[in-house]
């Protein structure tokens, strides 16, 4: 399984990577990007199964990355989990309207990450079964 972790802070990318390993994604190939622009370029060049992205980043923000993913026929079905310090109503609504699959407010716990990831994969499994 290939996961792309997008955050402009190298510490946060490493923390998410560590937590994913802790949650049992030991065989996952975890790649990193430091902003939305680099992320979308990587998503176009190789297949990923999950994107975990921050909101506040230079060049291209997380919400713009999410919109870009949903606008591309090849990428639009990709699950996107947002992990962000932005927790105001408008932003959460904007993310929901843009088609986010999960929204985690920082600081978060491993249990929260596990729960949101679980929900995302449950839904994928359910839509796969009904398709």
């Amino acid at each position: 399984m290939k996961i792309l972790v997008v955050d402009d802070f190298s510490t946060m990318r490493r923390i998410v990577r560590n937590l994913l390993v802790e949650l049992g994604f030991t065989n996952a190939l975890i790649q990193e990007a430091d902003d939305g622009e680099n992320a979308i370029a990587m998503l176009r060049s190789m297949p990923f199964e999950l994107v975990v992205t921050d909101w506040n980043m230079p060049n291209m923000t997380g919400i713009d990355l999410l919109r870009a993913i949903r606008a591309e026929p090849k990428l639009k079905g990709l699950p996107v989990l947002m992990v962000t310090a932005e927790n105001n109503r408008e932003q959460i609504i904007a993310a929901a309207q843009a088609g986010v699959n999960g929204y985690i407010v920082k600081p978060f716990t491993a249990a929260t990450l596990e729960e949101k990831l679980g929900k995302i994969f449950e839904r994928i499994a359910a839509s796969g079964a009904s398709a």
């Binding site: 955050d7 802070f9 510490t11 946060m12 923390i15 560590n18 937590l19 802790e22 506040n56 310090a85 920082k106 600081p107 978060f108 716990t109 491993a110």
Partner: peptide, 16 residues
């Protein structure tokens, strides 16, 4: 150790 890793996310919050 997992808790310690998570605690480092304050660096990201304060950094922002």
């Amino acid at each position: 150790l997992a808790d310690m890793v998570l605690a480092q996310s304050w660096q990201d919050l304060s950094g922002q």
